[in-house]
Design a binder for these strands. Structure first.
Length: 201
DNA sequence: AAGGCACACCGTTTGGCTAC
DNA sequence: GTAGCCAAACGGTGTGCCTT
């Protein structure tokens, strides 16, 4: 659990449910209640901290320095909601039997760091969590970075997990740009989040 | 008409408890 | 150890009232 928290940094209680389920060798989440019990116990012994931000999905949770060796994440920033959304996606992948790791830092100019890498038995997917649409030229440069990476062959596909509006922007960019067309058959776009960053059923 | 404020209501989360 | 039920707590939203 703490290995996973070290990777995602911060998550919500719903994600804790899925990862606890995965640790029980189940593809289903444990109950919300037992996830809360786990959090309460870990908080009591100083291994996690949590704060109720009033978001769907429950309190936000992170490992303390004692547990992960990492500094407290900054949770009152714009990117925090994105981090929690990435963790939510990661938790589902873990429950589905995938391993999860952070993408490596871009080693050269013009490359792009994905939000995560899902390692399955038969495939390796680069995961992008997209809550807000980017400007079109940004997609063009990201797509050409992905085209290079996919050509190298160590990853099989790119998965965009989006809000409704972000999915529209990604699909439009895929069809508008030539580089988008080049990689379109290796890119999957899924609507997975609502506008508040909550996970759709 | 617009803005500020208090209040009630609603949905969600949390923790206590019990049963299995 | 877990699921299910319940009550309390909390944040968000809508409404009514008052002032500007």
């Amino acid at each position: 659990m703490f290995e996973w928290l070290r990777i995602v940094r911060v998550c919500d209680v719903q994600s804790i449910r899925w990862v606890l389920g995965a640790l029980n060798s189940s593809s289903r989440p444990v109950s919300t209640r037992s996830a809360q019990v786990w959090c309460a116990r870990m908080e009591q012994v100083g291994l996690i901290e949590r704060v109720n931000v009033g978001a769907p999905g429950g309190s936000w949770v992170w490992g303390t320095y004692e547990a992960t060796g990492q500094a407290r994440p900054r949770i009152y920033t714009q990117t925090a909601r994105h981090e929690v959304a990435v963790a939510a996606a990661s938790a589902r992948y873990i429950a589905a039997g995938f391993a999860w790791k952070r993408d490596e830092k871009p080693s050269r100019v013009g490359s792009h760091q994905a939000d995560g890498v899902a390692l399955g038995l038969r495939s390796v997917d680069l995961i992008e969590v997209e809550l807000t649409p980017k400007r079109a030229p940004r997609y063009a440069s990201i797509f050409s970075a992905y085209r290079r990476r996919l050509a190298l062959g160590s990853e099989d596909s790119v998965v965009y997990l989006c809000t409704e509006s972000a999915a529209r922007a990604v699909r439009r960019a895929l069809s508008d740009f030539r580089v988008g067309d080049d990689i379109a058959d290796r890119v999957r776009v899924r609507v997975m989040f609502d506008d508040r960053g909550g996970l759709l059923a």
